[in-house]
Design a protein around this nucleic acid. Structure first.
Lengths: 208, 208
DNA sequence: AGATCAATCGCATGAAAATGTGATATTGGT
DNA sequence: ACCAATATCACATTTTCATGCGATTGATCT
């Protein structure tokens, strides 16, 4: 098994050196580079292309989140493991959206850190347990998708609308007249209390 | 530390008994009930209120996903840990949005199963690593994959369109004429190669 | 200096969508 | 047997959208 190349971005000297020592001295891991700020990391990492970047979020100047955003598109094979004291939704979801695939809290044990690096490089997405719970929770709140008492047929038609089809296309797909499509859509709009296709889709599939 | 009460829902006899034995004989865990189908579980579990329900997804009759959907609202303190051979997005996300807080693959080791039960009852969200990666990936797919060379103004207008506003509303919000709005949108459609608002939104925010 | 492009505006036209007001047939539940 | 909800269809009107063919300004790049 080849060693996993890890780069560290962390501003606090003690933590930085501690991590470097931990990783550098562990079997199967090697610490290729350490940076004390995002700007330096940004300049070097596209060339170094480590397997894993372990980065703090709260850095002086450019944040770890912005670092991921800037780097991930250039080196997509590199996995970014965030490490932060913050566990607010904003930090978590912005990190993930920008391309991070793991998120640890700073109170993680050395063993957890090493196993997370191992896991992220093997295709997993390690998270501290409270982070995982928040991520999962976002699904539950995000799409409780009220049904709005739409009938099956109405849902079916709304589905077609969501794909951008015109009324006449929906009509011929479902083998009904265009006037029937209109009637259904009118009813859908009434139930959702909206007046356009886009509003209906936004409300039904509640994106936000 | 009090023992964690676990109920099992699993149709395959061997697996069911194996899990019951594993959990029942482990320190800190107790297996309160086992069911071979969702219907029986549904009838009993609102009364039993175990700490954790470990349930298969593919069951004869009612699925494990529907079981969670039916039970979770009644017993919100109970944590549902899905266990399945399936790792398609549909199964995963339906489970999570119906209230499951963990998801294991059936190839998980006994140790992983026990630690997951421990973790889920402690407020975490254990997942097999490939599941976690899929969950994380779902956040990343939401970002515009390509930019399609839209100008800042065009992105701004597309944003308004995505909220379902009419042209005249966009115009007054941005303090420009409705004809200018039209011109921008015409340009947006050209760049995205589409012919309607919904198509543009689908393509730009690539919700496939 | 000239070329390019983003952002602004106008006019016009046909297509599509939204809405109003009907109607009939079928189904499921009380 | 009746009622409510659903699914189907028709005709008409108004509003909004999509698009074609212009134009002027300013910023930026070469």
């Amino acid at each position: 098994m080849k060693t996993i190349q890890v780069a560290i971005v962390e501003d606090t000297q003690d933590i930085r050196e501690g991590l470097a020592l931990l990783i550098g001295s562990s079997e199967g891991f090697s610490c290729t580079d350490v940076f004390s700020n995002a700007e330096d990391a940004l300049a070097e990492l596209t060339r170094i292309k480590p397997d894993v970047v372990l980065t703090d979020i709260n850095l002086p100047g450019m944040s770890g989140i912005d670092l991921v955003k800037a780097l991930k598109p250039s080196i997509p094979a590199t996995q970014f493991l965030m490490c932060s004291v913050y566990e607010d939704d904003e930090s978590i979801f912005q990190s993930l959206k920008n391309g991070a695939t793991g998120y640890l809290l700073k109170n993680s044990t050395p063993l957890k850190i090493l196993s997370s690096i191992q896991e992220i490089s093997a295709g997993g997405s390690p998270m501290s347990s409270s982070i995982a719970r928040r991520v999962i929770a976002s699904f539950q709140s995000n799409i409780p998708s009220k049904d709005y008492d739409l009938s099956e047929r109405e849902k079916e038609i709304l589905q077609y609308l969501s794909e951008g089809h015109m009324y006449k296309e929906v009509a011929s797909s479902l083998f009904i007249s265009i006037d029937t499509v209109r009637t259904h859509i009118r009813k859908i709009y009434e139930k959702l209390e909206v007046h356009s296709r886009t509003e209906a889709l936004n409300k039904y599939y509640s994106k936000k």
